[in-house]
Structure formats: C-alpha cells, structure tokens
C-alpha cells in the first residue's frame, strides 16, 4: 500500500459519500445518471467476486463491501425512494449502456491475463469502469447547469483514478515484476475521459460561476 493508492481509495470513497450526502440532504438526484450508477454496480460486483475466496487484507474486504453496498444503496434511492425517485430525469438519461457493456465484455474475452471465469469478469470490470462515467457526462451536457455536489462528485471520481495512475507509476518503479498493462491502459483512457470535464470544472471554479459544459 502506498500513499497514492490510499489517497485514491479515500478520494473514491469521498466521491460516494458526496453523492450519498447530495441525495440525503437535497432528497433529489436531479442531474445524476442512474445508468452510470448501475454500470458502477456491475463493475464492483464483477470485480469483487474474489471477496469470497481470496483474503488480501481487512482494509481490502471492508472497502469492497462499502463500494458494493453504497452503489446498490444509491440505485435503490434513485429507483425506489418515494421522494428521490421522482427527481430522476428519465427522459434525459437515455445513454444506451449496451453499447458500453457488450464491447467491454467482448474485449475482456479477447484481451485478458488468463481465460478463466473470474479473470474474464475482473478484466470486464476494468474495461467497463473506464467508460462507466460516460452516461453521466452526456447527461451533464444535456442538463445545462449542474449543482455543485454533482460536479464535485465527478471531479472526485476523476481524481481517484488520476491518483491511481501515480500509484501504478510508483509501484512500477519500486516493485520488481509489477506489471498490469491492462489496468494501466484502461485506467489511462478512463482518466482521459475526465480531462475535458476537469478543464471546464476548473474554468468555472476560477470564474466562480456555475459549471455548464458546452453542449
């Protein structure tokens, strides 16, 4: 464990806490993409299957349980909660996730470290995480002004993966045979999808006005 990875995990945790706070405090999920949340639930379930049969550390187990339970909790809020579910913008959140899930699954069947059930699903989760934010970014461009908590949520999600990139560089130079080119490639692409958001986020923050992405 190094400081970059720990900071990345904490940033990821913060993004989920910000999201839950937003939903709890405002009793609204306006501007949030349910499809992105569902994709993240698929990512966590398909990646953390090893939760049941390989113990790495208590930290690892606890964080995995938090990520899985929080993603389902958010989906429950957006689908079932009698107040929050009313504020979900179904008409705008129309990204066809099949266009993300199917190619990622095909790719994980072709490019993986080992052709086994858990390994393919793990690889699928790595590819899917790279594109899971797209429905949210598309929704962002449709709903012009977004609230601060949502933009903070997306910023923290991007920051978590950027910190993980520092972690990969650090581990590459400090550990002998550490190589995870699938994770590195996918993670780099994932962080790249946030770049334009980062640009407009910092621009709006400096001009101290509400963030609005050009459609």
């Amino acid at each position: 464990m190094n400081i970059f990875r720990f900071a990345g995990d904490m940033t990821h945790l913060c993004s989920i806490i910000v999201l839950l706070l937003k939903i709890q405090a405002t009793k609204s999920c306006a501007g949030l993409s349910l499809r992105t949340q569902e994709l993240y639930a698929i990512v966590f379930v398909s990646r953390y299957l090893d939760l049941f049969f390989t113990f790495i550390s208590m930290y690892n187990v606890i964080m995995k349980l938090i990520f899985i339970s929080s993603s389902f909790c958010i989906i429950w809020y957006m689908r079932c909660h009698r107040i929050v579910a009313q504020t979900y913008d179904r008409e705008q959140d129309t990204f066809r996730v099949a266009f993300l899930v199917v190619p990622c699954f095909m790719l994980s069947l072709m490019i993986n470290h080992e052709f086994s059930f858990t390994e393919v699903l793990w690889t699928f989760s790595i590819y899917l995480e790279a594109v899971a934010i797209l429905p949210q970014l598309v929704l962002l461009q449709r709903t012009f002004n977004i609230d601060t908590l949502t933009s903070n949520y997306i910023f923290l999600l991007g920051a978590y993966r950027a910190l993980y990139m520092l972690n990969w560089i650090y581990r590459y130079f400090t550990e002998r045979d550490y190589s995870q080119w699938i994770v590195w490639t996918s993670g780099t692409l994932q962080t790249a999808t946030y770049c334009d958001f980062f640009y407009y986020y910092i621009l709006s923050w400096r001009k101290n006005e509400r963030l609005s992405l050009p459609s």
């Binding site: 995990d9 990821h12 090893d50 550390s57 690892n60 964080m63 080992e114 550490y178 994770v183």
Partner: peptide
C-alpha cells in the same frame, strides 16, 4: 503470486 498481488488493488 504475481496474480494475487495484482488483485490487491480495489
């Protein structure tokens, strides 16, 4: 194993 370690990240 190397595989084991590779999966130690979240």
């Amino acid at each position: 194993s190397e595989e084991q370690r590779a999966k130690d990240e979240l």
